[in-house]
């Protein structure tokens, strides 16, 4: 269609468009959760400004829910911060996986990228990095659009959350459906199916015997380790399970 190389503005527009195309399921999925968080935080006595600030600084849904419920229960700073740390340790694994695709990036860009790593942006960006022409600029657009959707929806929830009907349009299922599809993208051979099944089974088992969400890290580390051991012993050539 185009005969001459794209101009700078066209390139920027293309980056934002590609990022937005990848990010919309995340933004849609954040909407009900962000609104719900805003409502609960509002009930716990946080003002919309405080809610927005917390969402901007922390940008981690489950930790924010837990923090607000601990605040309501009268917990102090240190227990809440320690719980937040443990709940968000799983990002270590996601950041490690992403690092393979962000080689050669400067320190400041890596620092900026780190801010936007969530379960959702990790899964979407990693899939794209692996499968198509994806780069850190497009990935950053995904991170920042997700961030804007999260901060915005939590603030709106703080103002007007009670007026929004609960469970409208099945929107509460958006993130689960997104994760299901992203999991399908990761199942690139029999060994990946096996490892996913092992991780899921372990996660269910550990989540029942252990409170909190450390089951995510424990199950993933064990399952990935089993995967390495199986691939080593089967001596399959790399990249073809």
């Amino acid at each position: 269609m185009m005969t001459e190389p794209p101009r700078k503005e066209d390139e920027h527009a293309a980056i934002v468009r590609d990022g937005a195309k990848a990010a919309w399921p995340i933004c849609l999925g954040y909407l009900p959760i962000g609104l719900a968080f805003g409502v609960i935080a509002g009930k716990a006595g946080l003002t919309p400004l405080e809610i927005g600030l917390m969402s901007l600084l922390v940008f981690a849904g489950s930790a924010q829910f837990i923090a607000v419920s601990m605040l309501t229960g009268g917990a102090g700073l240190i227990p809440i911060v320690m719980t937040t740390f443990v709940v968000n340790l799983r990002h270590l694994l996601m950041s490690s996986s992403l690092s393979v695709f962000l080689r050669g990036l400067g320190a400041w860009r890596l620092a900026l990228y780190g801010y936007g790593i969530t379960d959702e942006s990790f899964a979407v960006n990693l899939t794209r990095f692996r499968d198509e022409n994806w780069d850190w600029r497009r990935a950053l657009v995904v991170n920042h659009l997700s961030n804007a959707a999260w901060v915005g929806s939590t603030v709106v929830g703080g103002y007007a959350g009670e007026f929004i009907p609960h469970g409208a349009f099945g929107i509460d299922y958006a993130l689960i459906a997104m994760f299901l599809c992203l999991l399908v993208f990761q199942l690139r051979g029999a060994l990946y199916w096996l490892i996913a099944a092992v991780a899921g089974g372990l996660a269910v088992f550990i989540s029942i015997i252990l409170p909190g969400n450390l089951y995510i890290v424990i199950a993933s580390v064990l399952a990935a380790t089993i995967g390495v051991l199986i691939r080593r012993t089967s001596k399959a050539p790399e990249g073809s399970p």
């Binding site: 799983r90 379960d119 580390v221 990935a224 995967g227």
Partner: peptide, 24 residues
């Protein structure tokens, strides 16, 4: 070995996030 390990992390983590949300 570490690259191979990291290669299994996405499938593992997505499954570990999903399955407990579905069956517990």
């Amino acid at each position: 070995w570490f690259k191979t390990w990291l290669d299994f992390i996405p499938a593992s983590i997505l499954s570990a996030l999903l399955l407990p949300a579905l069956v517990t």
